[in-house]
Simulated scan of single mutants.
Amino acid sequence: MKLKDLKAKNYFFQAIDHPILERILCKNTSKHIWDSMRRKYQSCAKTKRQQLQDLRTEFETLKMKSGKSITYYFSRVMPIVNKVRLQGDKSDDVSIVEKILRSVTPKFNFVVFAIEESHDIDNLSLDELQSSLLVNEKKLIQPEQEEKSLQVSTPAGKHDKTETNGYKDS
């Protein structure tokens, strides 16, 4: 029995972050460690409800910032969605897809319209939405990059000195 307890304690020590580990080092058995962790992380229903409300508010107020990429925006949205789901909320992909479509920057308005018209939003997954937005983002960025590279390759204010009246002297 003692060997099994030591193995269980070892698994706890490997899986737990250092700051928490310091709190449980004084516990004698794996059962004491388990009970301590359960008391610490098992919130009461009222606390869970409040945390869920806070996460929902954070999710609803989230908007894509101008100049930021779709990848960056999804990296801000998905952790919140995952936390909401971990709290026990069974929100479906449809509400998340609709929220994302509402909160992207105005330069994606035509993309949002096209997605809404061409896809059944009820059946559109988050992965499909992200993929579609990424493809369109690349199409939006490509002309800007080409224009910048043309501006760099043609210095402003430099003209051929031999040109007069619109004709070049040969």
Rank of each mutant, 00 (worst) to 15 (best):
D54A: 09
R56S: 11
T57H: 10
T57D: 04
E58T: 03
E58Y: 10
E60P: 12
T61P: 03
K63L: 01
M64S: 02
K65T: 14
G67H: 07
S69A: 06
I70V: 15
I70W: 07
T71R: 12
Y72A: 13
Y72S: 03
Y73A: 04
F74L: 07
S75T: 09
V77F: 10
I80M: 13
V81N: 03
N82I: 03
K83E: 13
V84Y: 04
V84N: 00
R85C: 15
R85V: 13
L86I: 05
Q87T: 02
G88N: 09
G88T: 05
K90L: 15
D92R: 13
D92T: 11
D93V: 02
V94Q: 12
I96E: 00
V97N: 00
V97Y: 01
E98D: 09
E98F: 05
K99H: 08
K99V: 03
I100V: 09
I100Q: 00
L101E: 10
L101T: 11
R102G: 02
P106L: 07
P106A: 06
K107Q: 05
K107N: 07
F108E: 09
N109R: 14
N109S: 12
F110A: 12
V112C: 05
V112I: 02
S118K: 04
S118Y: 00
H119V: 02
D120V: 00
I121A: 13
D122E: 08
L124E: 12
S125M: 05
S125C: 02
S125F: 09
D127T: 15
E128P: 14
E128G: 05
Q130P: 06
Q130L: 04
Q130I: 02
S132E: 14
S132R: 14
L133W: 03
V135W: 12
N136P: 07
K139L: 13
Q142F: 07
P143M: 11
P143D: 01
E144L: 11
E144P: 00
Q145H: 08
Q145R: 15
E146G: 01
E146T: 05
E146H: 08
E147C: 07
